[in-house]
Design a protein around this nucleic acid. Structure first.
Length: 421
RNA sequence: GUGGGUGUAGCUCAAUGGUAGAGCACUGGUCUGUGGCUCCAGCGGUUGAGGGUUCGAGUCCCUUCACUCACCCCA
């Protein structure tokens, strides 16, 4: 058994839990559609270059977390570690000719990163994301955030905080970067080892370091907001104004940065205090440079991704867990079994959830089984019934039993049981 | 990759170094064709694995594996 156990960080989604996922996914579909997004499904495997180019050569994901293999023809392929790169690739490859901009996609599916598993972090995990490609208007930022807001509200998830920041753009970021490095350089020896390494590769990420010694220093570091160019500054103000108008609360977190290289301007995270260390339930931002970086025309875009496993921990129990049976058929003896089996088939074709017991098992044990499966009704057929040409339908809750003639069995059952969920 | 914690029945957990147990679950009976509740019985284990100390190890020591939390990273 053990030699076939599932891989570390790879989990089965089992009945009892899967019903909740289906429920969340159904809310997602109606909500995302209402906001004008269409489903896109991209392959799980992509060329490795797609991710190294989009996420960034020096990001941790690309450096040490990707599942990368050689394809049969020798090319490098990678199990996708995130969704945005593939969506942009598909947009450029297949749909950029349709001139209705912005293009609005949503996706849902597994992502893969080889990390050490812990609470809210798996090697195969699932993201639900949305992307708006081809529009720079700050209203798009607000739209996207209002979609997130609505979605979480419909799921009944409470206690979330929307954290907001702006990371600037290629016009203003270089100046900021220089100024930040100048500040950090003085304190370089007191920074943690990781941050000393980041100083060269990705100094912005030092702002996000949780270590005490670094926080003392970064607390007084200049935030990106102080260096925004006119355009970025106006954009950020418009986003905030838009959110206030929709009554969506948020906090500015000047030191919020993103781990992926492609982000510009608006960056955000939705956090909770209920998940321990992995406190980001959703995150995203603008990536106005990514489409061009992947070989397309300069095209602004914005998107987010929700961590499904993390979200599921916050979703209150839904009424859809463990779907109960409409009807359980109890045959007593071989004759009854042969009679009821086609009836089972006929009722299932009418979309009734039903199961049938074993004909040689006792009535008592079959009743017990019906009870455990949550059956609302039970249909009993034994020798007596076959002699009389009738069956017994029992309401499990009220214990009322009625006799039904063989000839009108299906119709009567359907009208009694109904198709209520 | 680095630390900490935990591994005993299907599940949740007991057992001063001295015969491996309880509750829940499961099967059956109590009730020979009527579920949940009660009571009774039954089923169930190489104590994660390997080695060592000891008359004797679930318990102490070493190794290893798994799970888990945190660092890291990120959704």
């Amino acid at each position: 058994m053990k030699e076939f156990s599932s891989l570390k960080g790879f989990k089965d989604l089992l009945p009892g839990e899967s019903e909740r996922w289906e429920w969340v996914e159904s809310i997602a579909r109606t909500t995302f559609r209402a906001f004008g997004f269409s489903l896109i499904r991209t392959p799980i495997l992509e060329r490795t270059a797609l991710f190294t180019r989009s996420i960034g050569e020096t990001s941790d994901i690309v450096e040490k977390e990707m599942y990368t293999f050689k394809d049969w023809n020798g090319g490098n392929i990678t199990l996708r570690p995130e969704g945005t790169a593939s969506v942009v690739r598909a947009y450029l490859e297949k749909t950029s000719h349709t001139p209705i901009l912005p293009a609005k996609f949503y996706y849902s599916g597994p992502m893969f990163r080889h990390e050490r598993p812990q609470a809210g972090r798996l090697r195969q995990f699932h993201q639900l994301g949305a992307e708006i490609i081809g529009e720079i208007d700050p209203r798009q930022d607000v739209e996207l955030l209002s979609l997130l807001h609505t979605f979480f509200k419909r799921l009944g998830v409470e206690g979330l905080t929307l954290e907001l920041n702006s990371l600037g753009c290629p016009v203003c970021r270089p100046a900021y970067r220089t100024s930040l490095k100048t500040y950090l350089e003085e304190h370089l020896p007191t920074l943690c080892e990781d941050c000393q390494r980041r100083f060269m590769a990705n100094p912005l990420r030092i702002l996000d370091c949780k270590k005490k010694e670094c926080r003392v220093i970064t607390k007084k570091a200049p935030p990106p907001l102080d260096y925004l160019c006119q355009e970025c500054s106006d954009h950020f103000k418009s986003v905030q104004k838009g959110l206030r108008k929709l009554n969506i609360s948020f906090v500015i977190r000047p030191h919020l940065v993103r781990g992926l290289d492609y982000y510009t301007k608006t960056a955000f995270e939705i956090t909770t205090t209920a998940l321990g260390a992995q406190n980001a339930v959703a995150a995203g931002g603008r990536y106005d440079g990514l489409v061009a970086a992947l070989g397309g025309p300069a095209t602004p875009a914005i998107g987010f991704a929700i961590g499904m496993e993390r979200l599921m921990q916050l979703v209150p129990p839904s009424p859809f867990q463990n779907l109960p049976l409409h009807l359980f058929l109890i045959p007593l003896g071989k004759m009854a079994g042969e009679y009821l089996f086609p009836v089972l088939y006929a009722l299932r074709r009418k979309e009734l959830r039903c199961e049938m017991g074993k004909e040689n098992a006792s009535l008592k044990s079959q009743m017990k089984r019906a009870d455990r499966l949550g059956a609302r009704f039970v249909l009993i057929v034994g020798e007596d019934e076959i002699d009389r040409g009738t069956t017994v339908l029992r309401d499990m809750a009220t214990k009322e039993q009625i006799n039904i003639e063989f000839t009108e069995l299906t119709e009567t059952i359907l009208s009694n049981v109904g198709l209520r969920d």
